[in-house]
Simulated assay, not measured.
Amino acid sequence: MQERAARTRQALVHAAAREFDDNGYAAASLTGIGKAAGTSTGAVTFHFTSKAALADAVHAQGVAVTRRALQQVDHQAGPLRSAIAMAGAVVRCLENDVAVRAAARLDRDREDCPPNWRAVWSTAVEEELAKAAGTPSCAPANPSLVLALVLYLVHGAEANVRAQRRGGAPETRAGSVSDLPGTRAGSVSDLFTRMWEMLLPVVEGPPSS
């Protein structure tokens, strides 16, 4: 019974994530979410007392997926490249996980859903860039400007992901960070990676002699 309840709850979170991602918080309804999950409105309210509570669960899952992706980043290449790798991991999450996209949209739709999804990853990137400040690998660059560039490119990548989703690109189930595929040729994450490959020599400057 508990296993069945857990499956129903996860199905509701996934259906709600799709609804929030596609239509935003205000337009989402518990009736529509229940129908998409193949269950009744009563079952929805049994697991979640309100739309806000369901949105909190979706947002928390998106944040958790993002945190795990950040933790998996290899830091051996130094803080600057680690910061860029973190940003790339966020883009892959946006590309492949509906709960992450829903969390990003809920950040904009609601003012009462801490911890802010963007703050979770941007703070991690900022801390990594702070380690890079003054090191030879980041000597020519202002870390605050690099952070601003990262923010602009991630938000641009999110917009691109949403445009591709409207065109019918596939998605994975919410919470599947361990199953994220590698960067695909022609994907948004592939473009993000190639852009940084072009930008990093400028940010890092010439190799020290």
Rank of each mutant, 00 (worst) to 15 (best):
C113F: 01
V177C: 12
A43H: 04
D56M: 00
S187Y: 11
R105P: 04
M195F: 08
R101F: 08
R92M: 10
R92V: 13
L199S: 02
P79I: 03
V125I: 07
D109N: 09
T41R: 12
L94F: 09
E171R: 11
T123F: 01
T45D: 00
R105T: 12
H155M: 07
N160E: 14
L147E: 02
P206L: 10
A103K: 04
G205Y: 06
V65A: 14
R194S: 10
T135A: 11
S82R: 08
F46G: 01
A133G: 06
R81A: 00
W121I: 05
A141H: 04
T123Y: 03
A130I: 08
A139C: 09
A26H: 13
A26F: 13
N142V: 10
H75M: 01
A159W: 10
F192G: 03
L200H: 11
P170N: 05
A169I: 13
R105Y: 08
A77Q: 12
A36K: 14
G182S: 07
P136C: 01
V177M: 12
L54P: 04
L12P: 00
A103T: 02
L191S: 10
L180Q: 11
V91I: 10
I84N: 02
R194C: 03
G134A: 14
G34H: 03
M198N: 12
A102H: 07
G32S: 09
D109C: 12
I84G: 01
V13F: 07
V154K: 09
S137P: 01
M198W: 04
A87N: 04
A16Y: 02
L129E: 02
A26G: 03
A37P: 00
D107Y: 09
G186R: 02
V91S: 00
L151D: 10
R101M: 07
D107M: 09
R7T: 15
G167W: 04
A157H: 10
V63I: 13
A69R: 12
A52P: 04
K35D: 13
G62H: 03
G186P: 14
Q10F: 12
A28P: 02
A15P: 05
V90P: 00
G168Q: 09
N23Y: 10
A15L: 14
A6S: 08
A5L: 10
P79S: 06
A64M: 06
P170L: 04
R108K: 14
R166S: 06
R67I: 09
S40T: 15
P143A: 08
H14N: 15
